[in-house]
């Protein structure tokens, strides 16, 4: 087999590349393979691979399958419409996350796996988030304690959960 690049030398290198889940295969001669290695890497740096282009690509794909109504949807706060977002890959304001939540949800899943924030919470105004997190952690522990038949620990946890829930009501 001849090299797919130069079509002069015998192809003796088989290159399989998986980039963002997309698989490409090539049969190259040794010389071209080496050159390609460098070419590909430079390509990574200079825009052929660009996360925003990629994102815009995914979104315009999804746009095709959206009902007409949501294609024309616009954010009441900043005026950003879905078409513009799909083209540019950028939202206009914080409220866009609410406006386009139905369209964003599958996209966020695809990018991040689980689109539920873990980690740092803002020190201001995050009290309710903190409490919610705390509760769900306690409930998880309670379930585990019951399964492992650690009933004393389970009783402690049950009381703790009650206290936190009461605080929330107040």
């Amino acid at each position: 087999m001849l090299c797919e690049e130069c079509r002069k030398h015998q192809a003796n290198v088989h290159v399989t590349q998986v980039l963002n889940g997309e698989r490409t295969e090539k049969n190259l001669c040794e010389h071209c393979a080496q050159a390609m290695g460098e070419l590909d890497l430079a390509g990574l740096g200079s825009g052929s691979f660009n996360i925003n282009n990629l994102l815009a690509g995914i979104m315009s794909m999804e746009q095709g399958s959206l009902p007409l109504k949501s294609r024309g949807m616009a954010c009441a706060t900043c005026g950003m419409d879905y078409r513009r977002f799909a083209e540019g890959g950028r939202l206009g304001c914080a409220d866009c996350y609410q406006t386009f939540s139905r369209q964003l949800e599958p996209l966020l899943k695809r990018i991040h796996g689980t689109p539920t924030h873990q980690g740092k919470l803002p020190s201001r105004g995050a009290l309710s988030v903190n409490r919610k997190r705390h509760l769900s952690r306690l409930k998880g522990e309670l379930k585990a304690a019951v399964e492992q038949e650690h009933f004393e620990r389970a009783a402690e946890l049950r009381d703790q959960i009650k206290r936190v829930e009461q605080e929330e009501v107040q």
């Binding site: 994102l55 890959g89 939202l91 996209l107 924030h117 980690g119 740092k120 803002p122």
Partner: peptide, 18 residues
């Protein structure tokens, strides 16, 4: 700007969360 589920909100959804 912070969202209970999504975390810190960013212009590009690829940066949202942390």
């Amino acid at each position: 700007a912070f969202h209970e589920d999504y975390g810190y909100l960013t212009a590009c959804p690829t940066n949202v969360g942390t």
